[in-house]
């Protein structure tokens, strides 16, 4: 299927990149293998401007109001939110565990930082994910090159600033290669 190219409308503020929204919900009956992941992940839409972002975002359920095992992903257009994607295969992510009740606010702030190009790491950012789980929620930001320490440190420091994280917040970095090996995201 050939999709229509998304571009900013008249009078809108263009984004540095187009971004695609994805939604994933685990169906309990299926095993958590790659195939069922690809089958269960759904594209919601793509935005090219600040105004298009708000239009789409405002229609979505806030992550803190979701129930069950589900994820929202916002990735640069053309990058699938999968470890195996060309842009992700040498990459990794910062993981921030959040106690229940914080996901919606932190999710919005991490999105605004990404869309506004606050990370200053060139082309390195791939996307952001909020994962709703039973006891806690998890925010992650994916970048292209896991072994580029200058980049990963800068992302960590920017996250601390833009999210205004409590000082005791634990941040972990995990390479997608390790996620593939232990078949686990976190």
């Amino acid at each position: 299927v050939r999709r229509k190219a998304i571009s900013p409308g008249a009078g809108e503020h263009p984004l540095q990149y187009n971004y695609t929204f994805w939604y994933f919900r685990r169906t309990p009956s299926r095993p958590a293998n790659t195939q069922s992941y690809e089958q269960n992940i759904r594209q919601i839409g793509t935005v090219a401007s600040v105004e298009q972002f708000w239009k789409l975002y405002s229609h979505l359920v806030r992550p803190g109001d979701l129930i069950g095992h589900s994820d929202f992903h916002i990735f640069k257009e053309g990058i699938k939110p999968m470890w195996e994607d060309e842009a992700n295969k040498n990459g990794g992510k910062w993981i921030i565990r959040l106690r229940k009740g914080l996901a919606s606010r932190f999710w919005e702030n991490i999105i605004l930082a990404m869309l506004g190009e606050q990370f200053m790491v060139g082309e390195e950012i791939c996307g952001v994910v909020v994962s709703i789980r039973f006891q806690e929620d998890i925010l992650s930001i994916w970048n292209k090159t896991a072994n580029d320490q200058v980049t990963t440190s800068r992302i960590r420091d920017t996250l601390r600033r833009v999210l205004n994280l409590p000082p005791n917040t634990i941040m972990e970095y995990k390479t997608h290669n390790d996620s593939l090996k232990d078949n686990s995201s976190f």
Partner: peptide
């Protein structure tokens, strides 16, 4: 090239634009 950078405050202001509805 030039990067299109927006701060949080500006992005939040755009939310109330008629174009964002």
């Amino acid at each position: 090239g030039t990067r299109i950078i927006y701060d949080r405050k500006f992005l939040l202001e755009c939310r109330s634009s008629p174009l964002a509805r």
